[in-house]
Write a protein that binds this DNA or RNA. Structure first.
Length: 277
DNA sequence: CAGTTCGCCTGGGGGC
DNA sequence: TGCCCCCAGGCGAACT
């Protein structure tokens, strides 16, 4: 489940490993991967383009090409592999291959086919394009401030967890970190978001950035173990306080971590540390 | 606007 | 060992 830190790790790894090569060939084997144009058009437009820069917005990976932005959303299980052309691969789950001039390949692997690719001309405003229509500011955008969040959420009846997961105001948080952020705030994930004060939103932003930064730093340390068949999934080993810890002891108070469903998502919390406001 | 449910997908786990 | 069913979950769409 790549969230912002994993996407950032993938981005940094790709940038370090690939740098700025020219795409000799582009092959897409799964039609629905591409949104906004046909597969054949996508392939034709990408071929001959060089990667000129790497960006990220929320959970979107943005590869800047000569004339286009190539956008990749990994959704649940998207991964990239950098391998040489003659190295074998999992044909069932590799849905796109970019071949560079040195015959190295960037291979997109996605077991459940939820991931998506988009391609936009650089002379169009990226944030007016379909992929970003309902995507808010990146979590690390300095323009994203507590006052803004308070204004948006202080009269909405959704839960804290749902607010964190909603990408249209603040982009980058997924199910794992939403739980971890609620824990850091010591609020029950079902706390109604209109109960939060400006100060709460200020803490929320601080804790969110702290947790995601630590996850990025941690991802940065695990990607050292490169091999020729590097799996660039952005996996990392960060100590999680609540997520996936059902039945285990809370590190803070020793109570048993509980799992429930909030907004249709599996949600973990410590019933003792986290209270509804 | 809020909430619920479904569809997209496939592997893995539980139940038998 | 095998088979069926359900679940996981990001996210948009459809419906109440």
């Amino acid at each position: 489940m790549p969230e912002l830190p994993e996407v950032e790790t993938v981005l940094r790894t790709l940038q370090a490993q690939l740098q700025y090569p020219k795409i000799k060939k582009c092959e897409v084997f799964y039609d629905r991967l591409i949104h906004g144009c046909t597969v054949s058009k996508f392939q034709a437009l990408v071929e001959g383009q060089s990667i000129t820069d790497y960006h990220r917005h929320g959970k979107f990976l943005i590869l800047e090409l000569d004339d286009y932005y190539f956008i990749s959303h990994l959704r649940m299980e998207g991964k990239y592999y950098i391998q040489s052309k003659n190295e074998a691969y999992d044909q069932k789950h590799v849905h796109a291959i970019f071949t560079f001039q040195n015959d190295m390949q960037l291979r997109y692997h996605d077991t459940r086919k939820f991931g998506r690719f988009y391609l936009y001309k650089k002379n169009e405003n990226l944030y007016e394009q379909e992929a970003f229509l309902h995507i808010g500011k990146d979590v690390f955008d300095p323009l994203l401030q507590a006052d803004y969040l308070y204004k948006i959420f202080h009269h909405r009846k959704i839960t804290l967890k749902q607010a964190l997961l909603n990408q249209s105001y603040m982009a980058g948080i997924g199910n794992i970190y939403a739980d971890e952020i609620c824990f850091a705030l010591k609020y029950h994930p079902q706390t109604k978001v209109y109960r939060l004060t400006k100060k709460d939103f200020s803490t929320l932003l601080f804790e969110t950035r702290r947790i995601l930064s630590e996850a990025i730093a941690s991802g940065g340390t695990t990607i050292r173990s490169y091999t020729s068949s590097l799996e660039v999934s952005g996996r990392f080993q960060l100590q999680l306080n609540v997520h996936m810890r059902k039945g285990e002891k809370c590190f803070m108070c020793g109570s048993t971590i509980v799992k429930t469903v909030v907004g249709g998502r599996g949600t973990y919390y410590c019933p003792s540390c986290q209270k509804r406001k």
